[in-house]
């Protein structure tokens, strides 16, 4: 698993990465009530705002962690945003992305570094 400073996690699945937000992030955000996902096939650039999430408290954005193409989105999450609260690292994933420059992952944190950041 890789982690970004924006509290996203990335898990390799073949040559694509599954992306979600961490439990720390969902705890801070509170109960999610709305998720707007990108379209499959979208080409995105690192730090583009590609997902809108709304919690009971406020709206926020999720940024593209790398350059690449969206290969799949979690439609179950759009139907039931609370999945991100109940299973942040599993059923609450947001989208899958195929990086165009996998070296962008090199700078990301591992679990220990992420835990250090949020502690």
């Amino acid at each position: 698993m890789k982690y970004t400073e924006e509290h996203e996690w990335l898990r390799a699945e073949g040559d694509v990465y599954v992306v979600g937000i961490t439990e720390h992030a969902t705890t801070q955000l509170g109960d999610l009530v709305f998720v707007e996902l990108p379209e499959v096939g979208d080409t995105v650039t690192k730090d583009d705002e590609i997902v809108v999430i709304e919690s009971v408290k406020a709206a926020s954005d999720i940024l593209a962690p790398v350059d690449g193409e969206i290969t799949e989105v979690n439609t179950a999450l759009a139907e039931d945003p609370s999945l991100a609260n109940s299973d942040a690292l599993g059923d609450g994933w947001f989208f899958k992305i195929k990086p165009s420059d996998p070296s962008q992952l090199d700078d990301m944190m591992d679990e220990a570094a992420y835990k250090e950041m949020i502690s």
Partner: peptide, 9 residues
């Protein structure tokens, strides 16, 4: 603003 139960619950 909230307790451990959370706003929704």
């Amino acid at each position: 603003v909230q307790y451990p139960l959370g706003v929704m619950k």
